[in-house]
Design a protein around this nucleic acid. Sequence first.
DNA 1: GCATTTAGTAGACCATAGTCTATTTACCAG
DNA 2: CTGGTAAATAGACTATGGTCTACTAAATGC
Lengths: 192, 192
Amino acid sequence: MATGTVPPGRPRDEKVGAALKSAALRLVRERGYQNVPVAAILKEAGVARQSLYNRWNTKADLVMEAFFEDAGTRVAPPAAGQGRSGRDELERFLNEVFDHLAAEDGTLRSLIAAAQSDPEFCRMFRERFVLPREALAVAFLAEAQRLGELPAGRDPEIMAAFLHGAFWYRLLSGQPLGPELARAIAGGIFGP
Amino acid sequence: MATGTVPPGRPRDEKVGAALKSAALRLVRERGYQNVPVAAILKEAGVARQSLYNRWNTKADLVMEAFFEDAGTRVAPPAAGQGRSGRDELERFLNEVFDHLAAEDGTLRSLIAAAQSDPEFCRMFRERFVLPREALAVAFLAEAQRLGELPAGRDPEIMAAFLHGAFWYRLLSGQPLGPELARAIAGGIFGP
DNA sequence: GCATTTAGTAGACCATAGTCTATTTACCAG
DNA sequence: CTGGTAAATAGACTATGGTCTACTAAATGC
């Protein structure tokens, strides 16, 4: 199997990549994506420039990996039929997501921006961030439909796009994400 | 009135700004936002660097103004109660918008990206692009509601956010905008 | 030990957005 | 005509993302 094969040459030092990710994450959280030059990450990680570009193509690539690796599962996904109504469950979920995004303060916006000028980055962003979250939402909506909380005629896929789109739209056009929006979205999906 | 007062000093040459906007628009359409250095715009316009930064703060500012000034009214806004059903009218409108965006090939994406790192630009983008379009959609949905095509309980504001959000979301996560999406969105808003 | 291969380091280098300085030009008030 | 003010031009300068080159270090196979 592939695990037995060892590539020739000096092996990568795992600590180098780890130091880069951790430095990037810390600095970006402290100062914001735009205010962290690559040089600062390198200095903080104590690593040479080339070591970054051996592993990632751009600063945005590095930050995305650091960000998503860390983000792991900070927010409990919505689950239908757990005592709460689907509507309330969706509202809870959105409020948690909004809190999380507020704490990241612009990191996600920066990454979405970076994705607009780099197709490969955009693809990765979609695979690692967009699609998993969309799948969760679709599953939740389909389950709510099965439980009769949502009219059967609705298309869960497009409802999921409405859901995510509505808050991306607010986020990217510089509007605050707050409880009112969570309530409005939940109401718009499940009916008032 | 204020029109009588003339500011001191040499007056701005209207041709300079016009040349910049027209050069920016043409080059960005030809080559894409990322592939047009500021120097190229300056050379094409036959104008000095400072003349650009006298008028706009960034390249994105200039391109946005050129873009929106030109975009004017390329797409007929949706109008309820004109023979077509609200659903069909919305689908038509979305298809026109998507065609227009396809022709611009990434300009809007670039501008949204630029807005993420510049609050002032973001504000202007919101005022000059987002809000007018949102207002049109809200008016259309409210009218459809008045005509009984849309249940009275729905909130036109959040429906408009769903509508725009859904295609921003697709656009920014690198998915194609096509007739299927227009149909799905129209179906999601008006019911299948 | 020696050759080969790839990782890591150091630092020069390039392209580009945006700032700053010096000089000239166009308009107004007196 | 002169002085003041701001626009236009030319071009140096800075900051930064990303590339390239030269050298050193750590692994493998002989």
